[in-house]
């Protein structure tokens, strides 16, 4: 019987990538602070708590125009 912890070496890169996505979105939110809709608080929650899809939604439809 194997345990999930045995796969840790395989899980670490996945988690790292998810973190990279979340962090780049978070940094972008804090630096630009303009959104097509919603506010900063909502987007921080979305980006941090919805892995993968949160940052994608933010980058594709959430972030404001570059002004």
């Amino acid at each position: 019987m194997t345990h999930i912890s045995d796969y840790l070496p395989f899980l670490i890169p996945i988690i790292a990538l998810e973190l990279i996505l979340a962090l780049s979105a978070l940094i972008h939110i804090l630096r630009h602070r303009s959104f097509r809709f919603g506010n900063m608080f909502i987007w921080i929650i979305i980006v941090l708590f919805f892995q993968i899809i949160g940052p994608i939604i933010y980058f594709t439809i959430g972030r404001g125009e570059d002004e």
């Binding site: 796969y7 395989f10 998810e18 990279i20 996505l21 940052p55 980058f59």
Partner: peptide
């Protein structure tokens, strides 16, 4: 505009996750 970042990291995640999920 972060499209490359998104697509490449999601692809890498899918690539790693698929066999791992099957195994686990």
């Amino acid at each position: 505009n972060y499209k490359v970042l998104i697509l490449l990291s999601v692809s890498a995640i899918f690539g790693m996750m698929s066999p791992l999920t099957a195994k686990m």
